[in-house]
Design a binder for these strands. Sequence first.
DNA 1: CTGTTAGCGCCTTCAC
DNA 2: GTGAAGGCGCTAACAG
Lengths: 341, 341
Amino acid sequence: MEEKIDIYFISKKAKVSPATVSRVFNRSELVSEKTRKKIQEVCEKYDYKPSIVASSMRTNKTKYIGFVIPNMTNPFFFELLRGAEEYASKKDYYLVVFNSENNYEKELVFLDAIFKRRIDGIIISGIAGGKKDNFFTREILKKKLPCVLVDRYVEGLDIPSVITNNVKGGILAADYLLKINNKRIGIITFELKIKIIKDRYNGFKRILEQNGLLENFLIEIPVDSKNILEELARNRDKILKSKVDAIFCLSDFIAIYLMEFLRNSDIKIPEDLSVIGFDNITYSQFVSPKLTTIAQDIYKMGNLSCEMLLNNISENNNKNIKLKNKILEPKLIIRESCAVR
Amino acid sequence: MEEKIDIYFISKKAKVSPATVSRVFNRSELVSEKTRKKIQEVCEKYDYKPSIVASSMRTNKTKYIGFVIPNMTNPFFFELLRGAEEYASKKDYYLVVFNSENNYEKELVFLDAIFKRRIDGIIISGIAGGKKDNFFTREILKKKLPCVLVDRYVEGLDIPSVITNNVKGGILAADYLLKINNKRIGIITFELKIKIIKDRYNGFKRILEQNGLLENFLIEIPVDSKNILEELARNRDKILKSKVDAIFCLSDFIAIYLMEFLRNSDIKIPEDLSVIGFDNITYSQFVSPKLTTIAQDIYKMGNLSCEMLLNNISENNNKNIKLKNKILEPKLIIRESCAVR
DNA sequence: CTGTTAGCGCCTTCAC
DNA sequence: GTGAAGGCGCTAACAG
């Protein structure tokens, strides 16, 4: 029978108490250099790795952060995840992935898994929410699980979030289109119940309004992110007959599908029709024509969300500092998909 | 002082023993329906969620799987992750993300984190490996941590893997180019030390050889996945002067950068130059011209890798069935980036 | 600076 | 079908 290598084993070999061994890993400043070195040598020799599982029992900290994704098909979320992971792993926290694919049932399962696992906090980059509005976030709040929203926010709920100024993003898009004299406007929308999406829409529309061009707002096509191409095809006539100059897409993901659709329909971008997107995902620069878009700093949003969450987790102990939201600035990226008229 | 809600609390309220409560969650077939219902009601009432952390201590199972990614910039890995997550979460396992960005130091840190966290197994979609070749995998083997490689394999080591037949993929690419009479050939390579990449290369080259066209293998440009565009630019003259008909890229990720580079250099695809890729990532269909490529079923690879890992984890107990590798078939996807000459 | 001790919340025997 | 009890590996509190 092999002897198990735990903290007692190490403490015996090093001729110290288990508490001292523990201190070496947690509060090593309390241990004299001499004994610390000795203990480290013994640990090395037996390849001892203290169990975080066991320490979680005592400390009530698992060093895990949940990362909830609504749709792993959109690389936008991968970039968000990348930003968060990079910050977390630096601090010895690691991310657990929960991909709901916008499925409410799955979210309920995740909620259960998250609580059972005693995860220290979660970052939410999108939830379906289901019939009961915001059930997910309400549960999180009820249980006082530290939480940060990225690229999402919920009004009236006390959950910090990291977002881009989406209203301003919409404004930038509209301003630009008008400036280059694209005045017959269409828009492809999706999930307008999501506030950040609605904000883009509102910002955009506001500019048309201010310029008395609301009657030039000719088509508005809602799309479901699962069957974008089909829904565009269903609206083919509407799009072709509208004779719009430009179409604003509420995300690059959708813009790229729209470009594909237009190409298949022999409509030339930007000669026949300008397209402008939102997000600036990596691939927007690779489609052709290169997509003009409103950029968010996606990586930074992910990174910041994790930073905020970890700050909250540690501040929870001396509940003093109030969480703040972070709002990043959007930026117009002019590439090739919009024409001056 | 709030009473803590643990298994004892529930057992008292339900007037049963803690053992019975535990059984309801784990081996509920051993509990009579009547007591089970009663216990469930009490759990519901107090919103009790048994701690997986505590159960991990007893069972030595954390229900976590590590997912090691070499590069979160390539959406290929997101698709792999998606496939694995989907399988895992169905079985109440969850994935912990370790993104090394091909950094050997980070991998060492991860190795430590993985062992300390007593994660049940890991899926590796790529590692740097560092100076000591395969240090990472050797450590994993030494500690007998269940492990599966996806889109990677290591010869001579007893680690199961899920891959596509990459040699065959290379063959398909070469066959196709020759068939459409593209006979002056170039290739953009990267990380040839990775076996699956080298296999693609070898399969491709073998066909040229068999057709006595090896002297038509005109340029071979190695590229570092971090600065693809710059490295292509550095080789601009070489590419332009070679007058090749077609370039084979060992991944779509690279092919897309190459297309971008060629576009910037006013070389028309496919009229002046055919491009063929490998992987069939989502965006290959959105670039224009649409990329002709050798497809791997990425999602399925991720899914399968997780299935294999979980099978191994449970079979470990009654160490009987030997792990097998899975080799999926590649498929030529003809789109628009290769011209008949 | 170091040691002793008592749990953290659960599950697995082993009884009954 | 159910209960009693010990222990998984660690750390916090207290004592020295």
